[in-house]
Simulated scan of single mutants.
Amino acid sequence: MKILHLNYRQCESGQDSLYDGLCRVLGPENVIEYPQKPSLHGGPGIAYRWYPCFFNWPEFYTDEQKIRMLKENWFDVILVGCGDSTDWSIGTHRQERVKKGREEFSEMYELAINKSKTIATYALDMGDGSRINDHIRKEFNCLKYFKREYLEKEVGDDPGVLPFSLCLAERYVPENIEGPRVNLPFFAGRNYGLREPYIAYYESFGRKNTRSLTQRRLNLEMLKYKIGIDLLGSGEDTIRRYEIAARGEMLLCPKVIIKRENDFTEGVSAVFYDGFEDFKEKLNYYMSHEDEVDKIRLAGRKHFLKYHTGTARAKQLIEKI
């Protein structure tokens, strides 16, 4: 299988982690992104540079060669990266960037639309919003629409829209999670919106919110603690929940209303809280029940390795297309 992945130019953890997984499964010579993205090939990234989406895959073709390859029907599948109101060619809501992006990539954009009539094409919506990007879905003749923020009231009974969660690439998963840990919570991230009371309560234990860390530093810090706190971000499916499980912390995360396949199980592989008061109660309980924390966090790590690595997510996608 040869895949053309129309991907955002800026770093995008959902799209980029899947690209890495597909390269591991199919080989990098068979997974080609457009436009060329340096952060996938050992180069610098554009925006969101603290996210786990930097890789060192070899490059095989220029963007000009990729256009020619599509003209010659070299690809078996086209993946169209998008959000609910953006797509790979623009990556922003701003109208001046919309025009600039469409002009810059117009040849590939129009060619991919034309080729989608004969090449199996799928929308890959890893954005924060819950709406369906009907424009991209129709324009690119998408056979299926894979949706991160899958909300049943938005999707209805549409069989062509499928839940498709984030994942964490193996490069960012420690092989060994053994070592001394304390049964205390850990959180690092921005303080905004509904997060404020949760972070204030976390800091009331003498803990410090270290905000955005490099992936190397974040990994080292998370390996010191047994409880990892996940808070809602711009979307309900966050990359942090997978980082927590991957690094051997007990996942303490909010209940959500989006649909996720192979989700963690309450009290078995994760702990879900329903609002601030429930968060406080469960955090206090597990801080004083270390044996239960150990059982849940190790089960969570095992569940993550089975279902939520980049390779696992790539295989799940391939099975569906």
Score class of each variant (00 low, 15 high):
residue 4 L to N: 04
residue 6 L to T: 07
residue 23 C to I: 09
residue 27 G to P: 02
residue 28 P to N: 10
residue 30 N to G: 03
residue 37 K to H: 13
residue 47 A to W: 12
residue 47 A to C: 06
residue 49 R to P: 00
residue 52 P to S: 11
residue 53 C to L: 07
residue 60 F to A: 03
residue 62 T to K: 07
residue 64 E to K: 14
residue 64 E to L: 04
residue 70 L to K: 02
residue 71 K to F: 04
residue 79 L to T: 06
residue 80 V to R: 02
residue 80 V to K: 01
residue 93 H to W: 14
residue 99 K to Q: 13
residue 101 G to N: 07
residue 107 E to K: 14
residue 108 M to Q: 10
residue 118 T to P: 00
residue 119 I to L: 08
residue 120 A to R: 09
residue 120 A to Y: 02
residue 126 M to A: 11
residue 135 H to T: 09
residue 136 I to R: 04
residue 139 E to D: 06
residue 141 N to W: 01
residue 141 N to E: 06
residue 146 F to H: 05
residue 150 Y to T: 04
residue 154 E to Q: 15
residue 165 S to K: 02
residue 174 P to F: 12
residue 177 I to F: 13
residue 184 L to T: 12
residue 187 F to Y: 15
residue 189 G to T: 10
residue 191 N to A: 15
residue 197 P to G: 13
residue 199 I to L: 15
residue 200 A to S: 14
residue 203 E to T: 11
residue 205 F to D: 00
residue 210 T to Y: 11
residue 215 Q to H: 10
residue 219 N to G: 13
residue 224 K to I: 06
residue 227 I to D: 10
residue 227 I to H: 06
residue 232 L to G: 12
residue 239 I to N: 13
residue 244 I to K: 05
residue 247 R to F: 07
residue 250 M to H: 06
residue 264 F to D: 12
residue 271 V to F: 06
residue 274 D to G: 03
residue 277 E to I: 00
residue 277 E to P: 00
residue 281 E to Q: 15
residue 285 Y to S: 08
residue 285 Y to Q: 07
residue 286 Y to H: 11
residue 288 S to F: 06
residue 300 G to P: 07
residue 301 R to H: 11
residue 302 K to G: 03
residue 307 Y to R: 02
residue 321 I to P: 03
residue 321 I to N: 01
